[in-house]
Design a binder for these strands. Sequence first.
DNA 1: CGATAGGGCTTGCACGCGCAAGCCCTATCA
DNA 2: TGATAGGGCTTGCGCGTGCAAGCCCTATCG
Lengths: 331, 331
Amino acid sequence: MTQRNRRVTATDVARSLGLSRATVGYVFNNTPGQSIPAATRERVLAEAARLGYRPHRTAQALARGRSMIILLVLPDWPMEHSLRQNLETASQILDEAGYALVTYTRHERGHARPLWELLNPDVVISWTPITAAERSSMQASGITKILPQVQQERSALASATLTAGTRLQITHLHELGHRRLAFATSTNERFSLLSEGRVEAARQAADRLGLDPLDVRPVDHLDGSVARAVREWHANGVTAVAAFNDDIAAMTVAAAQRAGLSVPGDLAVIGHDDTPMASMLYPSLSSVSIDSVGLGRYLANLALHAAEDRPLPETPPDLHATIVARESTRR
Amino acid sequence: MTQRNRRVTATDVARSLGLSRATVGYVFNNTPGQSIPAATRERVLAEAARLGYRPHRTAQALARGRSMIILLVLPDWPMEHSLRQNLETASQILDEAGYALVTYTRHERGHARPLWELLNPDVVISWTPITAAERSSMQASGITKILPQVQQERSALASATLTAGTRLQITHLHELGHRRLAFATSTNERFSLLSEGRVEAARQAADRLGLDPLDVRPVDHLDGSVARAVREWHANGVTAVAAFNDDIAAMTVAAAQRAGLSVPGDLAVIGHDDTPMASMLYPSLSSVSIDSVGLGRYLANLALHAAEDRPLPETPPDLHATIVARESTRR
DNA sequence: CGATAGGGCTTGCACGCGCAAGCCCTATCA
DNA sequence: TGATAGGGCTTGCGCGTGCAAGCCCTATCG
C-alpha cells in the first residue's frame, strides 16, 4: 500500500522499474542527444501512467529557471465579452506550446501584491500600457520579458482593437445616408487610451469620406452630459451617432428616448464590441463585432515569441471587424 | 560589477554580510525557536533591501511543499460587475496572509489544461459546483483542499448570492402594491445552478407573502420566448416581474416596449446584481445590489481556513443585499 | 572551579527536477 | 586482436529555499 497523499515523483517511476531517475527524466523530456530505445521508453511511459505520475511544475520551474507561465495583465474594464473570448483561443495556443496563461486584472486601488511578483512568469504581456512603476516592479521581480516593450509600442496591442472597428462604424452610418455624424465617447479615464484611439480613428474616417468634422463628446448619464449632448446634436442636425462602445451607445439611445426622440428615426446609434446586451435592448443596438479569435491568436503569438526569444513580429495583423446591423441604425 | 540579470538570492545576502544562509533565512521567516539578536536582524534586513533581494517563490514553494497560491475557479459567465468587485477584497485579504489569489475562468469547450494542473495551488475554491471529472483531475494533481468539499455543499457558496437578493425583489414589488408577480429566468444552462436557486427563493418569498404562485418562465430574446412571456403575463394580469439578473430584466423591458406596453406602467420590472448598465437604460432598471465586499471577505476566509487546516466556518454569513429602486419599478 | 544552559550561529540535507559528464559493454573496423 | 565508436545507461551537481541538528562560546549556578 503506497503512502497516501504523497505525490508520485520521477524517482518513484525510476525505482519501480529499476532504472535511474535520469533515464526516466530523459524519456519525459525527449531530451535531444539521448538515445533511448523504444522498448525502454515504452516501459517508462507505461509505468508513469500506471502510477499516475505528474511532473511537479514547481520543481521543473526551479530546475529550468523558467516557469512556463505567461501573465496577461488586463485592464479593470467591463470589456468582458470580447476580451475574455479571445483568452480562450490564446490560452489554448499557449497551452499547446507548454505554457500556462494566467490573467491578472489590475486594480486601481488594490493593495495586494501584483501577481508578477508572486508567480515568476516568463513573460508579462499587457493589453494596455505598462506604467513606469509597474515596469520597474516587474524588473525587480526578475522579469525581463515585458510586452509591450516600450512606451511607444503601446499602440501595437491597443490600436489593433480600435482602428479597425471604428472606421466601420462611420462608414456604415455614411452608407445609410447620414451626413452629419457625432461620436459619443466615455468620460471614464480608465478607458482613455482606448477611447482616444477610437476617437482619432473616427475623425480620420469621417474626414476621408468628406464629412463634416465629427462632433465628439464625452458623455455620461449621471452628470446629465448625455442628455445635453443628444439635445444639442439633434438641434445641430446630427442624425447619427457612433459610440465608443455598447454601453455608451445604450446610454445614448436611452437619452434620446428620454428626450422624446426616436431611434433610429431621429437619431441612429451604433455601438462597438457587440456585447450580448446589444441584441437584447429595444431598439436592438447595431454594433461592431471584433474578431476575438484572431486577437487571441495574435496575443498568444506575441507572448510565445517573447518567451522563446524569437524576434517579435513587427506589425499586428489586420483584425477582422464586422458590422452587425440591428434596429438602432435601421433605415 | 555584479552579473547582470541574475537575481539576488539569500546566499548573496548572507555572503555579503559574512553570515550563513541559514541565519539569513531565519530572519526572513521569523522562524520560531530561533534567537536572532536585533542587531543581526537589522543588518540582514538592511542588506537585503540594499541588494534588492526578493525571495524566490518557486523555490519557497518547492521547499515548503506549499505554493501559497489559491486558485479561484470562476464560471464562464458574463462576470457581473459584482463578482469581479469582490475579488479585489478577497485578494487583498489573502495577500495579507501571504497567499496569492489566481483566478481561472473555466471554459466549456476549452481544451487547454486547467490551471490547477499547472500552478500547484494549495487550495482550489470554486464559485460554482465542481464536476466529478474536475475534482478527480484536481486530486490527481495532488490538490487535497478543494472547496466546496462535497457536492451538497454547493449551496454554501452559491446560495449566499441568491437567497438574499431575490427575496428582496419580491418584497419590493409587493410593497409597491403588486399582487400578481412573475419571475423571468434564464434559458442559459450555464446559469442553471444560480437561476434555479433564485427561482426557488423567489417562490418561497411569494408564498410567505401570501401571493399567488409565481409565474416562472425562462426567457430569451432570440427564440421569441420573452415576447411570448410578456404577452401572456400581461394577459393574465401580472403587473410586475422579478428577473434573474439585469440582462434578463433588460430583455424583459425591451420585450414589453416592443409589445407596446409601458414600463413600469403596465409592467414593473426589477433586475438583480445592479450592473452598471442598469442605470443607463430607459427606463433605468431597479435592481438588487449585493454586498460584494462581504462576499469577497467570505470567500477569502473560506480559502484561508482551508489553506491553514482550520475547520471551515459552517454557515455563510448573511450577505447584505439592498434594493436599488429606479424607474422600472417606480409608482 | 567544573557543570550546565542557552544564545548565536553554522553545517548539511531535503524538496523534485534538468542536465552535464562519465561509465560499461557490444559491435564494427583496420 | 586491439582500437574505436557509439548505444544505453548511471552518477552527481545545481536550481533557491526551509529547517533539523549540531557546534562554540559565554554567562550563570551550585
